[in-house]
């Protein structure tokens, strides 16, 4: 396989040539991933960090950035392995276990690289990276890319948009919870119960985006 063929394969859709790279579809993917099918609030993926790391705005932003980062890398890894290794060998059904393997080692690897070459970024993202290793949102984005038959370009767009959607949900939640600290919440609902109630109401609010774009 020469370089040109590989490149055209990466940019075109894996299964057919009917998906060009058009801006309208890209916007639809972005809007859909951020709002309509928000990973946290309508797909219910990544609830654990959504509840766990949403107490402070700073850490919410840090977690969000780390998720966007890892989602993008995981997409590159998982898409390549699926389309260049698993599909040619007729092993598409192994994608879940293969993706888990890839994501887990990728996060470890990224953590090492950060620690070595960018201690400041490591200090900012470092505590969140192990949390992300087994995060279902990352696996979700990898599997969805395959299910939707996105090309690598679309997959990357989808991954970044999904990460932004996750960050948005996390930041909104953190802002609400910081305000909640000052509110007079009944003792029985303090902490997690109230967070779940709010998550539910936010989810209903995000349902309003249904039908927009994709």
């Amino acid at each position: 396989m020469n370089a040109t063929a590989l490149l055209s394969m990466l940019l075109a859709a894996p299964s057919s040539g009917n998906q060009g790279f058009d801006l309208g579809r890209m916007m639809a993917i972005i809007i859909a991933a951020i709002f309509v099918n928000n990973f946290v609030l309508s797909r219910f993926l990544g609830i654990c960090p959504f509840i766990g790391v949403s107490r402070q705005l700073d850490s919410a932003v840090g977690m969000g950035a780390a998720v966007i980062f890892v989602m993008t890398l995981a997409t590159i890894g998982s898409w390549s392995v699926y389309n260049l290794l698993l599909v040619p060998m007729n092993l598409g059904y192994l994608k879940t276990i293969a993706f888990i393997l890839i994501i887990a080692s990728l996060v470890q690897f990224v953590e090492m690289i950060l620690q070595k070459f960018s201690p400041s970024l490591y200090r900012a993202l470092g505590i969140f990276l192990p949390l992300i290793t087994t995060n279902c949102a990352i696996l979700g984005v990898a599997v969805l890319n395959i299910d939707e038959k996105y090309s690598l370009g679309y997959s990357l767009v989808h991954a970044i948009a999904a990460g932004i959607g996750f960050t948005l949900a996390l930041i909104l939640m953190a802002g609400l919870r910081q305000r909640l600290e000052l509110a007079n919440v009944p003792p029985a609902l303090r902490g997690k119960p109230m967070a779940f109630l709010i998550a539910g109401i936010m989810s209903i609010a995000f349902l309003g985006f249904a039908g927009l774009g994709g």
Partner: peptide, 8 residues
């Protein structure tokens, strides 16, 4: 699958 996953 065993070979592929094992190799991976």
């Amino acid at each position: 699958p065993v070979i592929v996953l094992g190799a991976m």
